[in-house]
């Protein structure tokens, strides 16, 4: 019945769900929280599915995800409602990769939600500062400031994640 009401939605999620899930995981660092975040954003796109299905629903979902993740109220709610045990991650997980990933997760966990969102937009989604500002609904200056602060913190806590020369340049520009 839902599939009839929202034609094409299931296909959209099949095609774009994995990419959205990956971004959500980088934003939250927790599989339950990531699943919750994508579901919440998809549920919002369903409210406007008739209009959006002919346009660009993915950009709407992404924008919603980033805004929801920065919402302090939602973080409180999610903190209250998440299950205690996260699901088993799928796929191969070689030992070396796990060690690096743990280090990355720990380092990202040191960032504030806004800083983390800017890092994911700039260095995972490869967006420009202007595009990131548009996505987050803030000024380019705010994006620069968050990126600068985030890189400075990563540089302290996980220096191996930052290319030495380039990292310094980014900090100087920021």
């Amino acid at each position: 019945m839902d599939d009839e009401q929202y034609p094409g939605f299931r296909d959209f999620v099949s095609a774009r769900g994995p990419a959205l899930s990956r971004a959500a995981y980088l934003l939250t660092g927790d599989h339950h929280a990531a699943e919750d975040l994508v579901q919440a954003a998809l549920a919002r796109v369903l409210r406007h599915w008739r209009k959006l299905s002919d346009g660009d629903p993915e950009s709407y979902v992404r924008r919603t995800m980033y805004h929801l993740q920065m919402s302090w109220w939602r973080r409180r709610r999610v903190a209250e409602s998440l299950a205690a045990v996260p699901p088993e991650p799928g796929g191969d997980d070689p030992h070396r990769t796990t060690a690096l990933r743990m280090s990355l997760e720990r380092a990202l966990g040191e960032l504030s939600p806004r800083q983390r969102a800017v890092i994911v937009l700039r260095y995972y989604e490869d967006m420009t500062e202007a595009q990131a500002a548009d996505m987050l609904g803030c000024s380019v200056g705010a994006v620069k400031r968050h990126a600068h602060d985030a890189l400075a913190r990563l540089r302290t806590r996980a220096p191996h994640l930052i290319d030495e020369e380039v990292g310094r340049r980014d900090l100087a520009i920021g």
């Binding site: 995981y25 980088l26 599989h31 998809l42 799928g90 796929g91 690096l100 890092i119 995972y124």
Partner: peptide, 27 residues
């Protein structure tokens, strides 16, 4: 751009499993 950070982010993202999205969104 910080190339190493980008690579690490992409490596971490590749390991994300499939989530149950459609039914959760419908609910």
């Amino acid at each position: 751009m910080t190339l190493r950070l980008g690579e690490e982010l992409r490596d971490a993202a590749e390991l994300v499993p499939a989530y149950d999205l459609v039914d959760g969104a419908y609910g």
